[in-house]
């Protein structure tokens, strides 16, 4: 087993509001090995996006990372200066966002925006940066990149813009790409294409990917390992096959049951009762207990610790599901 590329330990991010600090990411720990794809799954408000941004210091006030270690190739990113972090961002760790229209500057050409990702990190002549951008566009399947590169974001379709964002992330051959719901806004066929391309790219370049999504279906196609987040905590983590086939946490089970494709045709789709708790109202004990069908009295009082199973599967539950045979 190779040593992890990224090792996150006890990461805690809070948002300061007038009436106090609210914890969005609550002691999250996970690791990603080189070339591995980790799916970080959770509902809206589970803290998964904040967790992603926290890793490379992109949480803006009133948010603040207050505890934990982010060990990347042995260095703790939380101890780096803003200048050192900047040199690392886009070069060793790249990030892609959900809304590619908003993420691309409307008044700059695609070429200008891609080239700056190169020139900000190395002394590269503009022509060479342009060549690299063209090559990256071709890599993500954009036809006639030589002409497309001089166009503006509004001249691209949604899927094309997301490819541009992915191509931009690939420019410096980073070790890790943090992808924050990059396919959520796209229609299903485009989403499928991009997932397939992303997987192929991760394989060929050896880039590790942290894929943040609310869609377990996407994770099952793409990820080697999966971490399920609920109310700021990782409630279950493990190899994708283990977690999806033999979930131990009732929340993971609930998520799986609410995927239409996983259910028998004609059967009533099950759903998790209630809604995820807001930042301000996290229940005491296990945060999932008000919605949990397996809740015990202890769940209301005591937060469950981490239990470990085979092949690194781990969960936080007082009354876990028995592994199915």
């Amino acid at each position: 087993m190779t040593s992890p590329l990224l090792d996150v330990r006890g990461l805690r991010t809070v948002f300061h509001f007038l009436d106090g600090a609210y914890t969005a990411v609550d002691g999250v720990s996970f690791a990603i090995r080189p070339g591995e794809v980790l799916g970080l799954v959770g509902e809206s408000g589970s803290g998964k996006s904040v967790a992603g941004s926290s890793l490379i210091g992109l949480v803006d006030p009133p948010g603040e990372v207050i505890a934990g270690e982010v060990l990347f190739k042995g260095r703790d990113l939380r101890r780096l200066t803003e200048r050192e972090l900047r040199q690392l961002r886009g070069k060793e760790i790249a990030m892609i966002f959900q809304d590619s229209l908003a993420a691309l500057n409307p008044v700059l050409t695609i070429g200008e925006q891609m080239a700056e990702a190169v020139t900000e990190h190395a002394e590269v002549p503009p022509a060479a940066a342009r060549e690299r951008a063209i090559a990256a566009l071709r890599q993500v399947g954009i036809t006639s990149p030589e002409t497309r590169i001089d166009q503006y974001p509004h001249e691209f379709s949604g899927g094309m813009r997301q490819r541009v964002a992915i191509a931009t992330a690939l420019l410096n051959a980073p070790d890790l790409i943090i992808a924050d719901e990059p396919t959520t806004a796209l229609d299903v066929t485009i989403q499928g294409q991009i997932l397939a391309e992303m997987q192929a790219l991760a394989r060929t370049t050896g880039t590790a990917v942290m894929w943040i999504t609310h869609d377990l279906g996407v994770v099952s196609e793409l990820a080697d390992r999966v971490a399920v987040m609920y109310a700021g905590r990782i409630v279950e983590i493990g190899d994708t096959d283990d977690v999806l086939d033999r979930p131990r946490h009732p929340y993971t089970r609930g998520l799986l049951d609410s995927i239409p494709a996983e259910n028998a045709p004609g059967s009533r789709l099950r759903q998790i009762e209630g809604a995820a708790p807001t930042l301000a109202r996290r229940p005491a004990g296990c945060p999932f207990h008000p919605r949990c069908s397996r809740a015990l009295p202890v769940c209301q009082e005591q937060e469950p610790g981490l239990s470990e199973g085979e092949r690194g599967q781990a969960w936080r539950c007082h009354n876990p599901q028995e592994p199915l045979p």
Binding site: R89, M95, L104, N105, E116, E120
Partner: peptide, 27 residues
């Protein structure tokens, strides 16, 4: 400065001066 393109530029590792000059001022 709160727009996503500024965040994306920061994620690309663009220097603060570059963000102001290229991304914010142009808009």
């Amino acid at each position: 400065r709160l727009q996503d393109y500024v965040r994306f530029a920061r994620a690309k590792g663009v220097r603060p001066q570059g963000i102001v000059r290229r991304h914010i001022l142009r808009n």
